[in-house]
């Protein structure tokens, strides 16, 4: 008796798994209806900038409600050449390209935090990153102030509200904040704070100071016109 099942439906291996690519001009047009239930949330964003190893990754991940995401791991190799974490003790992970997290603000608004290296060579990405941002948090390591120059320059030049936040490594700062202000030559209106990237509330307060800058800027713009 031959119990072997017959194969007559054609060898599936020979069938093209995906017979056609999506044709953007096919049956359905853009105005397709039927999905009105639950419009996607309104996205807003804050940029978290600073040099390598200053605590951007920690800052974003400590407050994000999703595990930190990274878009472009291919930057690791580039980073390896310019990363100066050898000068920074106890730094084990390196920020590559762009990592981010998000916070659900209310039933409609979702806040994204995009962490980005402040180096000049990543400039090509900065327009995309900062376009429409509520503001920016520039994190500095007071042992390496020069690492944040590029970011400060950029936000000043593009009139994006920002706050300079010195990360308290091991709970202390290497320099007084006023010395930092002097060294960075930022205006007196630019808030200069110290925070601890490992503490969620500390990060929350740092972000709140950015948002108060954003609000002040929005009020100023509405008065000036």
């Amino acid at each position: 008796m031959d119990s072997k099942p017959s194969v007559d439906a054609g060898n599936p291996k020979l069938q093209p798994p995906y017979p056609q690519l999506l044709d953007p001009r096919s049956e359905r047009g853009p105005g397709e209806s039927g999905d009105r239930s639950g419009q996607p949330p309104l996205p807003v964003k804050i940029v978290v900038a600073g040099g390598f190893g200053v605590g951007k990754t920690t800052t974003v991940s400590v407050i994000s409600e999703i595990p930190l995401l990274t878009t472009e791991a291919a930057m690791t190799e580039v980073a390896a050449h310019i990363d100066r974490t050898g000068h920074v003790p106890e730094k084990t992970t390196t920020t590559v390209a762009l990592d981010f997290g998000c916070i659900t603000i209310d039933e409609e608004i979702k806040l994204y935090l995009f962490g980005t290296p402040g180096q000049d060579r990543f400039g090509f990405m900065w327009h995309d990153l900062t376009q429409g941002a509520l503001g920016a948090l520039v994190i500095v390591d007071t042992r390496r102030l020069e690492d944040c120059y590029a970011a400060v320059d950029y936000f000043e030049h593009h009139d994006i509200p920002f706050v300079v936040a010195a990360n308290r490594f091991d709970g202390r700062l290497e320099h007084h904040l006023e010395d930092v202000r002097w060294a960075l030559a930022v205006s007196d209106e630019t808030p200069l704070i110290s925070f601890d990237a490992r503490q969620r509330r500390s990060v929350r307060d740092a972000l709140l100071s950015v948002l108060h800058m954003s609000l002040a800027r929005a009020e100023y713009s509405s008065v000036v016109g």
């Binding site: 603000i105 948002l211 954003s214 929005a218 509405s222």
Partner: peptide
């Protein structure tokens, strides 16, 4: 959006 006071205030409340 980034200059919309109502939106910014909502984000502030959400973070608080």
């Amino acid at each position: 959006l980034h200059q919309n006071k109502k939106i910014i205030e909502r984000v502030i409340r959400g973070l608080q």
